[in-house]
Amino acid sequence: MHRITVQYAPPASEAEEEFERRYREEHVPLVHDLPGLVGFSLSWPQPLAGEKLVHLVAQLDFASAEDLGAALRSEQMAAAGRHAASLGVPATMFAGEVEVVAGG
């Protein structure tokens, strides 16, 4: 399996509710349209110590490197990228092969 991970920085406290609404109502449907997508999960990590550096983590799973590459080159990904930029929250995106070392 290959995965794209996107980490979104915390929005300003007064903008958090609007970010969450727009992400769920507008962005999630765009991600669902990506070719080759086999899994999509969201998490809201909480720091065990120190300040909160990440508000939301999105993980997009693909069966192969080829499927991931096709998704990255797709018009659907371009549309999702444009929308993500419009959310006004810095994001870091990276991709790689997943190695399961325990469990399922």
Rank of each mutant, 00 (worst) to 15 (best):
D67L: 12
R22Y: 00
L68K: 09
E14Y: 01
A63S: 13
A78C: 02
P11E: 04
R73W: 00
S64K: 12
V100W: 08
V31A: 12
R21T: 09
G50W: 14
R24D: 07
P47N: 09
V6G: 04
Y23L: 00
P29N: 11
V100P: 01
D33N: 13
T5N: 06
L34Y: 13
F40I: 05
A9N: 11
V38F: 02
A91V: 05
E18T: 12
P90M: 05
G81A: 13
A80D: 12
V100E: 14
H32E: 14
E14M: 02
Y23H: 06
H55P: 01
G39N: 12
A80H: 08
R82E: 14
P35Y: 10
G39T: 03
W44A: 03
L34A: 12
P35F: 10
V98K: 06
E99N: 07
A78F: 05
D67A: 15
G81H: 09
F40K: 03
G96Q: 07
S41N: 10
Y8L: 01
E51M: 11
H83Y: 12
P45S: 06
P47Q: 08
A102M: 09
H32D: 10
E16I: 02
P47A: 09
T5C: 09
E14W: 02
V101G: 11
S86P: 08
A65N: 15
M93N: 08
V54Y: 07
F94D: 09
V31P: 01
A91C: 00
Q7L: 13
P47L: 06
T92R: 13
A84T: 14
P35G: 13
L48S: 11
P11F: 02
A49W: 13
L68N: 04
Q59Y: 04
E97M: 11
K52G: 06
L30C: 07
V89K: 04
A63T: 11
A85Q: 13
D61Y: 02
V89Q: 08
G81C: 12
G69C: 07
P45C: 07
A58N: 12
H27E: 04
M77G: 04
A58G: 15
M1Q: 06
L72A: 13
V89M: 09
V31H: 05
S64R: 10
A9K: 08
E97L: 09
A71T: 11
F62V: 06
Y8A: 03
L56P: 01
L72W: 02
V6W: 00
A102E: 05
A84F: 03
I4E: 03
L72N: 08
V98G: 02
L68H: 04
T5F: 00
P11N: 00
H55I: 01
A49R: 14
V54S: 05
V6P: 06
V89P: 00
A95G: 00
R21C: 02
L68G: 04
Q76L: 07
W44C: 00
V101E: 03
L53I: 03
A102D: 07
M77I: 01
G50Y: 14
A63W: 07
